[in-house]
Simulated scan of single mutants.
Amino acid sequence: MSARPTSVAATIEANRATGGTLVGYLPVGFPDLATSIDAAVALVEHGVDVLELGLPYSDPVMDGLAIQKATQAALAGGFRVRDVFTAVEAIRSRVAAPVLVMTYWNPVLQYGVDRFADALVDAGGAGLITPDITPDSAADWLATSDRTGLDRVFLAAPSSTDARIADTVAATRGFVYAVSTMGITGARQDVDAAARTLVARLRAAEADQVCVGIGISTGDQVAEVLAYADGAIVGSALVTALAEHGVAGLARTAAALAQGRSH
């Protein structure tokens, strides 16, 4: 069993004085399981503070083309849900950064909510990011995460009502994932200004930690987001770098993004 990680919240708190937190997303199993583990380790070694490991799923509802292609390749290569626990344990044996698993809810249900959570704890994982469930439809997960101490990261969008934002803030542990734009993931030249408004609404609802994702692809955009949020989440730009330039290219991209904390 891997050592329990420093919590995501503690990582974010510790980074407040040093420019904020960089969260990096990669899918497990792309381009293969071993390389995806090496890639995640490389992210941490080149400036990423918190890892978000995507569990490949056949029907992603919010993933852009780069991530869809990568997850489809992982599934075609034989990815199985249990591989995510293998990956988390292997990564945690090499780096100390907290590891969150981003997963649509159906694979967790199919695996068994308690069984999935216990396996994640045993592997040293920090918790789950669940983009397609809301707190009011997550009773099983709320109970299981309370039992296991796993973080539970829910999403808030610009379209979220004040009531939904309040419920999300109350239920979330780790950080609230603020979706910066309405739509699917993917690098954009400008992070939508709606993100600032959304973060302000989350702060008003007493969110302690807020990280912004979707559309962030440069160090300058990381710096822009960290001026008003606790963390910046980067996915598509990292997946593209891994697909086109391998682990070495991914490392260069991560280092460039991490420069955004020192602007």
Results as ranks from 00 to 15, higher is better:
2 S>G: 14
10 A>K: 09
16 R>F: 00
20 G>T: 02
20 G>I: 01
38 D>A: 11
47 G>P: 15
50 V>D: 01
53 L>T: 01
56 P>Y: 00
63 D>T: 13
63 D>R: 13
68 Q>H: 02
71 T>K: 01
71 T>E: 14
76 A>V: 05
82 R>V: 08
87 A>S: 08
88 V>N: 04
97 A>C: 08
98 P>N: 05
99 V>P: 08
100 L>K: 09
101 V>A: 04
111 Y>W: 10
112 G>L: 08
116 F>S: 09
121 V>Q: 01
129 I>N: 14
137 S>Q: 14
137 S>E: 14
138 A>H: 02
138 A>L: 05
143 A>V: 08
152 R>M: 11
156 A>G: 07
162 D>K: 05
165 I>M: 06
165 I>D: 07
173 R>P: 00
174 G>D: 08
175 F>E: 15
177 Y>D: 09
177 Y>K: 06
180 S>G: 03
186 G>M: 11
187 A>T: 09
203 R>Q: 12
204 A>M: 14
204 A>F: 13
207 A>L: 12
208 D>A: 10
211 C>G: 14
211 C>N: 15
214 I>K: 00
215 G>T: 07
235 G>S: 09
237 A>S: 07
237 A>W: 07
244 E>P: 06
246 G>D: 05
247 V>W: 07
248 A>P: 02
250 L>P: 02
251 A>V: 07
252 R>T: 14
259 Q>S: 12
